[in-house]
Every structure is written in C-alpha cells, then in structure tokens.
C-alpha cells in the first residue's frame, strides 16, 4: 500500500498548511515546525495508520550512538524522512 499521499495530508493538517507545499526534500523546520509539532505529527501518523513510531524527543545523541540516533527526532528532518519511516512500518504491519 502506497501511503505517501496520506502521510502528507496528515502533516499538512497538523501544520495547517496546504499540502502542495510538501515536497520530499521539504524540511519540517523550514515550515515553522518545532519539536512539539513534530511529536504531534508522529502522534497523528500513529493514530492514522495504527503503528508505533519509536522516536524520542531530546538532545541529539552523541556521535557513535547509532541505536539512539536511529530513534532521534532529528532523523525526521524532511517530509521524505517521515514518508520512508512510516511506509516501512505500514509495510511491516501488512506483512504480519
């Protein structure tokens, strides 16, 4: 199932901007999103697709801490980052 369109709808709704402004390379920060906004987007996506996205809010993890880095909020920098992560989780759920 291709969900990128739905993901962008969710992000646009949370940030209250037209969906046309969301390209794969668009940075959330450039859209005015702060860390709480990203957390709210994550929540909305979890609700929409009934998935669990394991990202943590907080300072960026120390260099070399790969496990923490994978779950860091800074991994969700662009719209494309989110689409890929959510697509993977939706695919994993469908495969179960």
């Amino acid at each position: 199932m291709e969900v990128a369109g739905d993901i962008k709808q969710v992000i646009a709704k949370e940030l209250k901007i037209p969906v046309e402004r969301l390209g794969d390379d668009t940075k959330l920060g450039d859209l005015g999103a702060e860390s709480l906004d990203v957390i709210e987007i994550v929540f909305a996506l979890e609700e929409k697709f009934d998935i669990d996205i394991s990202v943590k809010m907080g300072p960026e993890p120390a260099a070399g801490n790969a496990a923490a880095a994978a779950n860091d909020l800074s991994a969700f920098t662009t719209v494309g980052d989110i689409c890929r992560a959510v697509q993977a989780l939706v695919d994993a759920k469908a495969a179960k």
Binding site: L36, F43, D52
Partner: peptide, 8 residues
Amino acid sequence: NAARLHPL
C-alpha cells in the same frame, strides 16, 4: 482502550 495518548 486507546493505544496512545496525545503528546501534549
């Protein structure tokens, strides 16, 4: 039985 609560 919500699976999650709002982040705020």
